[in-house]
């Protein structure tokens, strides 16, 4: 999986490196990192906009990068969000940046920067499932507010098909009960269901 993600982002880095700078409505990018050469920080600032993947229709308003030295590479924690009127929540990416090749490798992500209507759609697709609603009922999760996270195709492929999906998750922090639905927004259907119940 990580190899797949890495390859995906190598391609992104190579293919799109020049595309972000100078665009209108380019996000405000801040990069901070102790003990990292100015040249590397500058390259990260120039390249990060093309490595991140906002949800279609969304343009990030701000991208904040925290860089840390990790051997010969640099690990990056990236927090990106669109204007609050356009989307809510934060997209978090974890990259490894190789200063030698100027490439970004995606290590992990948690993508919640979505328009409220997109989140509502995903929740409602999930709630069409009898199995899900029965689980929410039996695990007393109906009163919890679900989170909606975007799942990138490289991950989705493992569970369904290589396309953008949504993970809609109900969680009770007190009991530890969790129910999550993997939703295909294009087909408007739930494709996988997962639950964890504390005994």
């Amino acid at each position: 999986m990580q190899i797949f993600l890495s390859l995906l982002f190598v391609a992104l880095a190579i293919g799109c490196l020049q595309g972000f700078q100078g665009q209108e409505n380019a996000p405000s990018v801040t990069v901070s990192g102790k003990g990292i050469e100015e040249e590397a920080l500058k390259k990260i600032k120039n390249g990060i906009g093309d490595a991140v993947l906002p949800y279609p229709g969304i343009t990030y308003d701000s991208i904040n990068v925290t860089a840390r030295k990790q051997g010969s590479s640099i690990s990056l924690e990236v927090l990106a969000s669109a204007h609050p009127g356009l989307a809510e929540g934060v997209d978090i990416y974890s990259f490894i940046y190789d200063p030698g090749s100027d490439e970004f490798f995606l290590k992990g992500y948690s993508l919640e920067n979505l328009h409220l209507s997109v989140k509502d759609d995903a929740i409602n697709v999930a709630l069409q499932s009898d199995e899900l609603t029965q689980l929410l009922e039996s695990m007393a999760l109906f009163q919890e507010e679900p989170t909606v996270k975007r799942i990138l195709p490289a991950t989705s492929e493992k569970f369904y098909q290589p396309k953008t999906l949504f993970s809609v998750t109900w969680r009770d922090y007190e009991t530890g009960n969790v129910v999550s639905a993997l939703v295909d927004p294009g087909e408007g259907k739930l494709v996988q269901l997962w639950s964890r119940e504390e005994q």
Binding site: G108, K158, W194
Partner: peptide, 18 residues
């Protein structure tokens, strides 16, 4: 340990709980 399998890519990332 608390994430659905399709959210494993966010394992180790920060999530505000309280």
């Amino acid at each position: 340990g608390y994430l659905p399998p399709w959210e494993e890519e966010s394992s180790g990332m920060y999530r505000v709980e309280r």
